[in-house]
């Protein structure tokens, strides 16, 4: 009885090991089922989804105009304090003074890509971009100014 049980256990163990090895053997002879991607080599074909949150961007159109009114909703909604907006008073053609953005400072080093600023923006002036390779040798390069030099507010956006 004991010997029967002893050899039975050995037989069962070998069977379970062979079941696993059959599976690994199947994938060994079917290399087209492997889904691994080699990341730095596949940069050209890397297809990121549209909603992927990589960084905050401020789109400018061909006339170098953005849609940011400087309302500072994003600055208030940011949990980490990674947005700082400096505004200025600009004299309009009709002589009135109006608040416009001077610099839109984005601290990428503090940003956690939660997307709350984009959610809070009433004029969709900022979006989340797809770029995710942000590594730099110095921390100071991660401080960015998003509005391009010479850019101005698009007409009709209030």
């Amino acid at each position: 009885m004991f010997i029967k049980e002893y050899f039975g256990t050995i037989f069962k163990s070998i069977k379970s090991l062979l079941t696993g090895m059959k599976l690994t053997g199947y994938y060994f002879i079917h290399p087209n089922k492997i889904i691994t991607e080699e990341y730095p080599e596949n940069r050209a074909t890397l297809n990121l989804p549209e909603r992927f949150r990589g960084e905050v961007i401020m789109p400018h159109d061909e006339k170098n105009e953005h849609q940011c009114t400087g309302c500072q909703s994003c600055e208030l909604s940011c949990p980490n304090g990674s947005i700082k907006i400096i505004t200025k008073q600009e004299i309009q053609p009709d002589g009135k003074k109006k608040k416009r953005i001077d610099t839109w400072v984005y601290h990428l080093d503090m940003c956690t890509m939660c997307g709350m600023c984009v959610e809070a923006c009433p004029t969709t002036a900022i979006l989340m971009g797809n770029e995710f390779e942000h590594s730099q040798y110095e921390k100071q390069y991660l401080k960015k100014v998003l509005n391009k030099p010479g850019s101005r507010l698009k007409d009709g956006v209030e």
Binding site: K12, S13, S16, L17, T19, G20, K22, L23, T24
Partner: peptide, 8 residues
């Protein structure tokens, strides 16, 4: 097959 059924 590969893990849960394995005797070890």
């Amino acid at each position: 097959e590969i893990l849960i059924g394995n005797v070890i």
